[in-house]
Design a protein around this nucleic acid. Sequence first.
DNA 1: TATGAATGAGCCTTCATTCAT
DNA 2: AATGAATGAAGGCTCATTCAT
Lengths: 225, 225, 225, 225
Amino acid sequence: MSSGAPATDLDPGEAARQTLAQRRSEQLLSAAAQLMERDGSQSVSMHAVAEEAGVSVGLIYRYFGGKHDLLLAVIVNVLDAFGRQVPAAIQAAGADPVTRLAAAFRAYCEVIDSHRHAAVLTHRESKSLSDEGLETIKRLEVETSEPLRTVIREGIDAGVLTPVDVDLVAYDLLLLAQAWPLKHWYFERTLGFEDYVRRQTALALAALLQPHRRRSYRHLLEAAG
Amino acid sequence: MSSGAPATDLDPGEAARQTLAQRRSEQLLSAAAQLMERDGSQSVSMHAVAEEAGVSVGLIYRYFGGKHDLLLAVIVNVLDAFGRQVPAAIQAAGADPVTRLAAAFRAYCEVIDSHRHAAVLTHRESKSLSDEGLETIKRLEVETSEPLRTVIREGIDAGVLTPVDVDLVAYDLLLLAQAWPLKHWYFERTLGFEDYVRRQTALALAALLQPHRRRSYRHLLEAAG
Amino acid sequence: MSSGAPATDLDPGEAARQTLAQRRSEQLLSAAAQLMERDGSQSVSMHAVAEEAGVSVGLIYRYFGGKHDLLLAVIVNVLDAFGRQVPAAIQAAGADPVTRLAAAFRAYCEVIDSHRHAAVLTHRESKSLSDEGLETIKRLEVETSEPLRTVIREGIDAGVLTPVDVDLVAYDLLLLAQAWPLKHWYFERTLGFEDYVRRQTALALAALLQPHRRRSYRHLLEAAG
Amino acid sequence: MSSGAPATDLDPGEAARQTLAQRRSEQLLSAAAQLMERDGSQSVSMHAVAEEAGVSVGLIYRYFGGKHDLLLAVIVNVLDAFGRQVPAAIQAAGADPVTRLAAAFRAYCEVIDSHRHAAVLTHRESKSLSDEGLETIKRLEVETSEPLRTVIREGIDAGVLTPVDVDLVAYDLLLLAQAWPLKHWYFERTLGFEDYVRRQTALALAALLQPHRRRSYRHLLEAAG
DNA sequence: TATGAATGAGCCTTCATTCAT
DNA sequence: AATGAATGAAGGCTCATTCAT
């Protein structure tokens, strides 16, 4: 990454153009995500997206093939965030399998929280997508949830977790993470993000931890109350 | 008007009309549910509902005020099924708190299974409902999930379950039940209804059971593998 | 009406049936008129008419060919009232041409008042009528306004009225009569039926009376203030 | 940006857009007026308006909020024409009150003639308007008929006209003006615009002129025959 | 690159009319 | 004679998409 001006460098004009295109793309994606998250992709018109982004309708079609493409891009954007942030969080958690699992779950929740309801779009709007887009998303979902499965497997192999159905547990944890934005639906009283994550983590570990390892993670388990 | 004809008899015309109206209503509700579950209520046209039900568009408006009403009716229909079947299942399960809890969870799953994805509409389509409709649904959800909370509380009081956050656990169990129709999204391999229910039950009990009571419910816990 | 049972007498059953049919017809006509007058024929649905009349939709089609026919019947009904009441009023007014003219105008206003806005339907809804229906109405209008023209002509011939364009004056008087239900549109302050008729009569006579005959009709002329 | 280009110049694009918008607006208004006059606003579909204007349905909604708005705009358009042309005609008529009155009446008739039956919509279609729209129209009607009342008052004050009910007379004159497009309904024979105006003016003046001033306006009075 | 006027298919809803009962 | 369930064409309106500028 040092000297030697890589051959891939673009001339300044080209760079500026790329930058603009990139900026536009993000600007549109962000506007679309914000509206779609709030109202569901069906309720959001291209005009609304254009207005939110401060550009004209026509411009959207320069960057995205149409509404379906835009929706797909919004979803892929969220999934990419999983792909980037979850492995990083796991790695940062150190070597202990349980700590890593807790970190992974928390990372999922955080991505979902920062993208609010957008994650919900994944399943909700599947019918608006082309078969190809649907395949892309399914593949990305499997890919981005793989770290979770891996970390569970590690825990089992290390003898810290009971030998459970890895796929099912990963499935459940993803559900609980994705259900965070729905909390206001069920809980009248305020339930903060921290509490939600800690309590769900505690519940999950109560189910997964080998009995004789429970006291090692008392700090994680006791959050449940 | 002499003897022989019970006073409670409706005249045949009236009776037939009631039957017809009921049949129509169910027919329409079923068609609407099927399509809305599959594609989301927004993507389903009234024409499509009519076609699916084998009637004309105009007829729908004799039975439902419009599209919003129809959606609301579909959702309420599911929630009503919860309200009827879950308490019955709990009662039929006998006195043991854990058995009752397992029965309640299974009952939720069964209603959701028999109404396929319709249960999902509840949270998905909230934007399409009137404030009044939304209130109705929220109220019904709280009401119909109350048996689950009650049964958990019983378990805790009986000292069989660990003292957890009842609301949160109920929330999670409902999520797992409602997530059953999504299983095809995450699980490539086939996962039957029985396996799904048994494994989820096992996981849940692993998290909830007091350690010293675990061996009493070994038959429920061992399904997890 | 005593003995002798005229040959035209129907047997009781037939009579009752005729009576029923007649009653139904009037009942429907009255309901239709009431609604159409208030909202315009286009805004009134056949269901609304049926409901107003306390019968089923289907029954209307036994008595009238359809909505157009019903509208036509309502209009003809009003025109018939002109044909019946105006000549009677003129005759009852005696021999004086001016008194007869005033009586004719008043009679028009009264019919229009008792049929409220229905008279307006005549011109308003012409596009809803078949050519044949339109012809019927035009013919009836000419017929029913003939007495007015006659009475004006009498006045001119008698030297009481100035020799004006009879058709135009009749046209104007009909307009003023038909405009009575619109009065609330223009007049904020209350203007009663009596005042309206008297003042319009006074204005008309001011235009029509021969100068040297004015003092004979001072009582009619002075209402104008 | 140097000299030669006046600062007040709009850039061409903006100017063209304004022109286009105005042209479109008039084009749509004219098409709508033409159809609504002929068939009543209720019978005219937006599709028909679009077709008549040679544009697509959707475009109408860029310029008018909907059908109600369109109707309101058509009506307001006529009333605006009154507001512009009537005062101008009165002023151009000079100082004589009677000449001014005649000019005012003629101006009303001319506006109505050039907008054909559109003026009729005012009273006919009140049911299709919002309360707000109705208020707008009533206010405009009062405003635009004020010149007529003023000119009548002037005549009375000058001692040329008899002291009549100003509101009622103005009401009648407006009616006669608005009734011009209905003439084909009542008059089999052809009655030209000139004849109509002259004869109605003559009749009106016959009713309004002070006896001793009649000979001064013999040219206006004698048109009545 | 960017605009936004314009299109037109499609949606929800209404309602005149029919017909089996 | 009377009902009212059922139909389906048509209307008002929206919005994804295109294209001339």
